[in-house]
Simulated assay, not measured.
Amino acid sequence: MDVSNFRVPNIPPTIYYIPNFITQEEEEYIIKNVYSVPKPKWTCLTNRRLQDYGGVPHEKGMIPEKIPSWLQQYVDKVSHLNIFEGRKPNHVLVNEYLPGQGIMPHTDGPLFYPTVTTISCGSHTILEFLENNEKREKICDILLERCSLVIVKDDMYKNYLHSIREVEIDSVGGCANLDNCMSKYPINEKLKRETRISLTIRNVPKVLKIKLF
């Protein structure tokens, strides 16, 4: 697959948006496995829950952990796109967002190679990009449909904040990637959120030689 065919136009470099990156059957398989893990695997934050796979990123280096096979196949699927410039993704963050939950404006920072990929399962959401200054003016919105993959790199990774608003209903009319989407949406289309599971697949460059078993 040539990701250049999926570049979102008319925004700063670079976002690629691939609809139907996984099938509905794969989506069900992922969700089933996410919810079958032991309860201690979840980390509970104030506005969402998450699971860490591959190790915990740290400035001194990540102690690598084996990614389970059900998840590794999707890490490999992303890896085959060759978007990490010769590196292989080695870390997955699984987030659960209930309707009305989101994440504050942030950057992913220097612990990761400056490319981030996310598979969305169970629900759509809207990823909002903002200027990284006090004004925080909006740059664009990107609609993330179920089963899609979004790739964020270059200036969009390094120089802009991204966030998910804490709302239960999204207006999709102004999203920059509507021409790239699987479905066609009327200008005033409103979408109600369901529970969303996201797989954020990245590369952590600094990995320690020891392993945890």
Rank of each mutant, 00 (worst) to 15 (best):
L98W: 12
R87F: 00
F112T: 04
D108T: 10
C121R: 06
L130Y: 10
L71G: 11
D108K: 10
V92C: 11
N95H: 08
Q72K: 15
H80V: 00
K153W: 04
L130A: 03
D76A: 09
S163C: 15
Y97K: 07
H162S: 09
L71H: 13
N95F: 00
H58A: 01
I126K: 03
C121N: 02
V152C: 14
P99W: 12
P110L: 04
V56K: 12
Y97A: 05
G61D: 07
Y157E: 06
Q73C: 02
P114T: 08
N132D: 15
Q73H: 00
L161V: 11
V78L: 04
S123C: 03
I142L: 15
K135H: 07
N159H: 10
M104I: 14
Y113Q: 01
P64R: 13
V116G: 05
K60N: 14
L71W: 12
E137L: 15
I63V: 10
P57F: 05
Y53C: 08
I67H: 08
T107A: 04
V92I: 09
M62V: 07
L143S: 11
F112N: 06
D154A: 08
L130V: 01
P89L: 02
C121P: 11
E137M: 12
D155H: 15
I67Y: 06
Y160N: 15
V78T: 07
D108Y: 02
I119G: 10
H124T: 01
F112E: 06
E131Q: 08
L144P: 03
G102E: 11
H106N: 10
E131C: 14
V75S: 07
E65K: 04
K135E: 08
D155F: 15
I142M: 14
Y97M: 03
Y74A: 05
E96Q: 09
I67G: 12
L98E: 15
I119M: 00
V94Y: 14
E134Y: 09
P105L: 09
N95R: 05
N95C: 03
G100M: 11
V75W: 03
D141F: 06
D108N: 05
E131A: 08
S163L: 01
K158F: 05
Y53F: 14
F112D: 06
T118S: 15
G61M: 06
P64Q: 13
L144I: 04
F129W: 09
M104E: 12
E96T: 02
E96C: 03
G109H: 08
K135Q: 02
I151C: 04
G54I: 04
I83K: 02
C147F: 05
V78R: 09
N90H: 04
N159E: 13
H58P: 01
H106V: 11
V78P: 02
I83F: 01
G109V: 05
L149D: 07
N82S: 05
E131S: 01
S120N: 01
S163R: 12
R87W: 00
P57R: 01
K135V: 02
F84S: 00
H162D: 04
G61R: 04
L143Y: 14
P99S: 11
K153L: 04
L149N: 13
N90L: 00
Q72H: 07
L130R: 01
W70G: 11
K88R: 10
S163F: 06
V152H: 09
D76I: 06
N82D: 08
H80T: 03
G109S: 12
T115K: 02
R87D: 00
V94A: 09
L144W: 03
V75F: 00
Q73R: 07
D155G: 14
L111K: 12
V116S: 03
K60V: 11
P110D: 10
V94W: 10
Y157F: 13
